[in-house]
Simulated assay, not measured.
Amino acid sequence: MSSVLSGNLGRVLCIITGASRGFGRTVAREMSVLVKPGSVLVLTARSGNELRTLQTELTESEAGMAGLRVETVVADMAQMEGLQNVVRTSEEAFGEGIDHLMLINNAASLGDVSRCVTSFTNMAEVDSYLSLNVSSSLCLTARVLQAFPQRPGLRRTVVNVTSLCALQPFRSWVLYCTGKAAREMMFKVLAEEEPDIRVLNYSPGPLDTAMQVEARTNTADPSIRKSFVDMFDQGQLLTCEASCAKLMKLLLEDNYTSGAHIDVYDV
């Protein structure tokens, strides 16, 4: 409670997946100013150059100069080796005084939105999508929680970046909707099984990112595609910064129901 009252998240080890761009990159920046000196950010993504640029930016920032440590792991989260490297780096970075473990499951892909359900006959294609978007989140979360078990003085928080698509079907978005729904239920189960862990399913809303460009360009269903085009044309997309500010508010206040789905517009 003292960390919340003082406006910070404590001395944190925070793992952020998909941190090289978009929402994940913004989360890393915002997290850096809300943690105490001596905290560690473990940033992972497939893009090494963008990760290293972010690492330099944060290390040279005021937070970095005050003692924030930033580690990067270039990894494909769909591969076991990638998960192992993230956990190993986190274990090595976990220093004395860390009182808050955080895992931000942000990494995700849109999948092929140019086709409808009846075109997905290739099991390997579907398995590949689910491996990156569902299996990797489950296995990384399990490995991280095993590596950092419950103990006195250590808070543990797990955030799943979810979507309205976890709750509502979008025509021609079968892979994305399925992945988000499965992933959200996974974290709801975690919240039931592990009451000491704070679990949040945060839906950041329609963000002005590369994924939105892909949605406006490739979505097969004309009405769904038009809805995204209209949001863009009417200036209704959110910046990553605006949505991330809502996430940080939730984490700082820490009064949400564990496992809940919370939409950016409800904060």
Rank of each mutant, 00 (worst) to 15 (best):
M1V: 09
V4E: 09
S6W: 00
N8Q: 08
V12T: 02
L13S: 00
C14L: 10
C14M: 05
R21S: 01
G22Q: 10
G24Q: 02
V27N: 00
R29Y: 00
V35E: 00
K36Q: 08
K36A: 07
S39D: 08
L43D: 02
A45I: 12
A45V: 05
G48I: 05
N49A: 11
N49L: 09
N49G: 15
L54K: 07
T56K: 15
L58A: 07
L58W: 08
A63T: 05
G67Q: 11
G67P: 05
V70C: 10
T72S: 02
A75L: 05
Q84T: 13
V87D: 11
R88Q: 13
E91A: 13
E92Q: 15
A93I: 15
H100Q: 11
L101W: 09
L103G: 08
L103E: 02
N105M: 11
A107W: 05
L110G: 07
S114F: 04
S114Q: 08
S119T: 14
F120W: 13
F120N: 05
E125W: 00
V126D: 03
D127F: 09
Y129I: 09
Y129W: 07
N133D: 13
S135K: 11
S135C: 05
C139M: 15
A142C: 07
V144A: 11
Q150R: 14
R151I: 12
L154M: 06
R156C: 13
V159W: 00
N160I: 01
V161E: 00
S163M: 13
C165D: 10
A166T: 06
P169R: 12
R171S: 10
L175Y: 04
Y176C: 06
G179F: 03
K180A: 07
M185G: 08
M185L: 11
M186D: 06
K188N: 04
L190I: 01
E192M: 12
R198P: 03
Y202Q: 10
S203Y: 08
S203L: 11
G205V: 01
L207E: 05
A210Q: 06
A210V: 01
E214K: 06
A215G: 07
R216D: 02
N218S: 03
T219V: 03
T219P: 01
P222D: 02
P222F: 05
S223F: 05
K226Q: 15
S227R: 08
S227G: 01
S227M: 15
D230K: 06
T239C: 04
A245I: 00
K246I: 06
L247M: 05
L252D: 12
E253M: 09
D254N: 15
I262V: 00
I262M: 02
D263F: 09
Y265F: 12
D266F: 06
D266G: 10
D266Y: 15
